[in-house]
Write a protein that binds this DNA or RNA. Structure first.
Length: 784
RNA sequence: GGGCAAUUGGCUCAGUGGUUAGAGCGCUUCCUUGACAUGGAAGAGGUCACAGGUUCGAUUCCUGUAUUGCCCACCA
């Protein structure tokens, strides 16, 4: 066995087993296979070129569970898909190909998107394979493939028939850069500096009213002025009119409690629309709509002489003009937070436009109830879900004025404007190239205008259970499989993906989407800071894989309990690699001393040391199993580590050596069987966390134990029951005696292998029956 | 401003209403022991963020404060 290297080499082993698993279809899903079905709603990652460390962290978490369930004998449905439609893909393609979507022919751009995806997706998915994900990669889906288009459009039709979607002209959050409507959940905050301007509004009386604003360019959209009803300064002005500077029109002064008397001058102009408060006032006081900004962020005709300027240009010009007219009293620099679009980082506007929405505001209570029916791991994540719902202020806008997405299966009657929905059996359709069947149900016209908008990517990914299940199941079967067993994901998308999936599942099936949700935390750098390109502290999982292998990466990933953020730690990854080496060497030790591994039989008469290690193993199996049942993979890892390093390697291996090198054939045989049995179980326990090294060891030494092709479809360890096992209750004191001998040798500067003559030990327990054991293990001539 | 989480030895993390609070890394000393020096043994090192409260007793429960991370609100 000398030819077997002392060090385990993941760069040789990992590709070998990846190829083996693929070739043998170890993780291929077959719905006819025996075992209880366990279904996982795998997150389809957004195609972004490369897997990042956060992906590696959270995806391995769900993979631990998938491995465990599979070894428990369940038929694990663990699909894989990529989320590759919508704005993120457009952004990526624009970046990679150096193009701008709105400067190209729509069809050319879509073609380019499809081609680019074909180019980059296989490599992208490959990273997921390399970390050892046990998904069925033989059949994957893309959120924009034909089947997913059909499912998505059909689901839209379902919502339409159930009156859960509606089209409405209303204020909507708009990204002038992407030139599309976006949803509340797609906003991010950005701290920015701006000028707070005090501007004069003339009153009928002599006094002027000072208004503080950061957005003077919206003066032309000013439809009212608000003050606080209890503000003594302005109380008597309520109901009067104020004159908008430059534009000269007069607007009413109204009172509302939302005004903060402390802020600025305590009087605020309401524009359509500067912010969400404006929208509320617009609705509440039925104010007129005056839009000064168009969809590209330029001033409209409403802005008179400023028309055509960008908002920024107009702001500068208006400030100049106000100064000239002495209507600008003062300016001060302030820092405030603005909303930006998460995909492009540009400031958003609120515009009035016609969009498709999914109704959610009227069902808040229901969604809160549904959240209680899902088991959250960890439990506190539910609170985040609830907070989000409680604070929702908008229905869910799902239409996007973009190109690369799933089209709405809808036309509009040219004469009366009535919606014409596509026939379900014709789906998927593209209304731009396909024509509707039949006539307008309202007016009988047969002239239609196609819907140009596409759906937002969340409108597709929110039905991920169906997108994935229908890879292997019929539509009917898929519906019956709701709720699925598990939704794994990271915590940052509770307010989007998780919430939206609950919404869709309720509307389509009146069910929760899954029984359990496991929520992973984020990866921070070594010092607990967020990883970001600008700080330069980003760690690429590909580099770790190359350097240390997937098992080591996964070991690190199992290092903190579910839901907690983790600091990136090279030390911990090295610890993972050390563990693979240690396992490898334990296997070498076994193979040097055990010709052919055999398992213990329940009738085997074992010795105290054997009984002790089997007993410890049983405890470890019980604790590890319980931990995995509770998604506590970190706890599981800790238990296995403690047993393997501190009980098995540090003690048992030493306990059994003298038997292997001695003449007592029977004792030797029992030791061989015990070490094989215990180590085989250790390898199995580690398999979910470190699938590669455990497979290597299984295939090399333990394959004959079970008639399976891979450790990953072998049976999960169960308690080992032995009829003739001696009582081990006093064995701990024998171990203490060994510790004493070791201590003595260490103090004397002797090697632990050194033979010594006699030693005196003080004990409470009678250790006579362990006399030979202690002498041999401790290499002592005599013990008193 | 609201919410969630975290705060335990130099570092990264476990853990518990009750005798001396654990592990790994790092550190010190020793050991080339017939699996492994990517190893082994022995050891130093902590008033469990801070302040109150509940309790016979709190690191563990409650309240408040501080710091960090995340989510949300604010954006006139």
């Amino acid at each position: 066995m000398n030819e077997i290297s002392k060090h385990y080499n993941p760069s040789e082993t990992e590709p070998k087993w990846l190829a083996f698993w693929e070739k043998e279809g170890i993780f291929r899903f077959d719905k006819k296979e025996k075992g209880k079905l366990y279904t996982i709603d795998t997150p389809p990652p957004t195609v972004s070129g490369k897997m990042h460390i956060g992906h590696a962290y959270s995806y391995t978490h769900e993979d631990f569970i998938a491995h465990y369930r599979r070894m428990k004998g369940e038929n694990v449905f663990f699909p894989f898909g990529t989320d590759d439609n919508g704005l993120p893909t457009e952004r990526l393609v624009e970046k990679l190909k150096n193009v701008r979507a709105n400067k190209m022919k729509r069809s050319d751009f879509i073609k380019l998107c499809n081609e680019t995806l074909k180019e980059i997706t296989p490599d992208f998915i490959n990273d997921w394979k390399k970390v050892g994900m046990s998904c069925d990669f033989s059949k994957t889906y893309s959120t924009i493939d034909d089947t997913r288009r059909r499912i998505t459009q059909k689901a839209f039709a379902d919502l339409y028939q159930k009156q859960k979607v509606f089209r409405q002209e209303a204020p909507v959050i708009w990204c002038p850069h992407c030139q599309t409507a976006i949803a509340q959940a797609e906003l991010e905050d950005k701290e920015s500096e701006t000028m707070f301007n005090d501007i004069v509004f003339k009153l009928a009386e002599k006094n002027d009213l000072i208004i503080a604003t950061t957005r003077p360019e919206l003066l032309s959209s000013c439809v009212a002025v608000f003050v606080h009803p209890d503000d003594k300064r302005y109380k008597k002005l309520i109901g009067q009119k104020a004159q908008v500077p430059i534009f000269g029109n007069k607007v009413e002064i109204l009172a509302d409690k939302k005004v903060d008397p402390e802020k600025g001058s305590g009087a605020v102009m309401c524009c359509t629309f500067g912010d969400t408060t404006d929208v509320e006032w617009f609705k509440e006081y039925k104010l007129p709509l005056v839009m000064s900004l168009d969809k590209s962020g330029r001033m409209t005709e409403q802005a008179k002489k400023y028309a055509g300027l960008t908002a920024k240009e107009a702001r500068a010009q208006i400030i100049k003009d106000l100064e000239k007219k002495k209507l600008l009293i003062s300016q001060k620099k302030i820092s405030h937070t603005v909303n930006i679009h998460e995909r492009c980082k540009n400031e958003i506007e609120i515009l009035n436009s016609e969009q498709w929405y999914i109704k959610i505001l009227d069902q808040k209570k229901k969604f809160l109830e549904l959240g209680k029916k899902i088991k959250w791991h960890p439990a506190f994540m539910r609170t985040r879900y609830e907070n989000w719902i409680k604070n929702l202020g908008w229905d869910w806008a799902i239409s996007r004025q973009r190109f690369f997405g799933i089209p709405f299966p809808v036309w509009y009657c040219e004469k009366c404007g009535e919606v014409k929905l596509a026939d379900v059996k014709d789906l998927p359709v593209d209304p731009l190239s396909d024509k509707p069947k039949g006539k307008c149900e309202k007016c009988g016209s047969s002239e239609f205008i196609p819907e140009k908008d596409v759906m937002d990517t969340w409108a597709t990914s929110s039905i991920s259970p169906q997108l994935a299940l229908q890879l292997f199941f019929s539509e009917k079967e898929a519906e019956k499989l709701m709720p699925m067993n598990l939704r794994p994901q990271a915590h940052d998308i509770i307010s989007t993906w998780l919430f939206y999936t609950v919404v869709r599942s309720q509307y389509h099936f009146e069910k929760i989407p899954w029984k359990d949700a496991m929520i992973s935390g984020h990866v921070l750098d070594e010092h607990g800071r967020k990883m970001s390109k600008s700080i330069g502290n980003v760690v690429a999982p590909q580099v770790i894989l190359e350097k240390y292998g997937a098992d080591a990466l996964r070991y690190w990933s199992a290092g903190r309990s579910l839901g907690q953020n983790i600091n990136y730690s090279e030390d911990e990854i090295q610890m993972g690699r050390k563990t693979t080496t240690k396992l490898w060497n334990a296997a070498r030790f076994m193979s040097m001393n055990v010709k052919k591994a055999e398992l213990l039989k329940s009738a085997d008469a074992i010795e105290p040391a054997d009984a002790w290690i089997v007993d410890e193993l049983n405890k470890t199996i019980a604790k590890t199993t319980k931990a995995f049942e509770n998604y506590a993979y970190a706890k599981a890892k800790e238990e296995i580590d403690a047993f393997f390093w501190s009980k098995f390697a540090d003690y048992y291996v030493e306990f059994v050596k003298y038997r292997f090198f001695g003449d007592d054939a029977k004792s030797k045989k029992t030791g061989e069987k015990t070490i094989a049995t215990v180590f085989f179980n250790i390898v199995k326990l580690y398999a979910p966390i470190m699938p590669f090294v455990t497979e290597e060891i299984f295939q090399t030494w333990f394959k004959h134990f079970e008639k399976v092709k891979s450790i990953h479809i072998s049976e999960w360890p169960e308690e080992i029951k032995l009829k003739k096992a001696p009582n081990t209750s006093d064995f701990e004191s024998a171990i203490k005696a060994i510790d004493e001998i070791r201590k003595y040798k260490t103090k004397q500067g002797l090697s632990l292998g050194a033979e010594i003559d006699t030693i005196k030990l003080k004990t409470k327990t009678n250790l006579k029956k362990y006399g030979e054991f202690l002498r041999k293990v401790g290499r002592v001539g005599g013990i008193k």
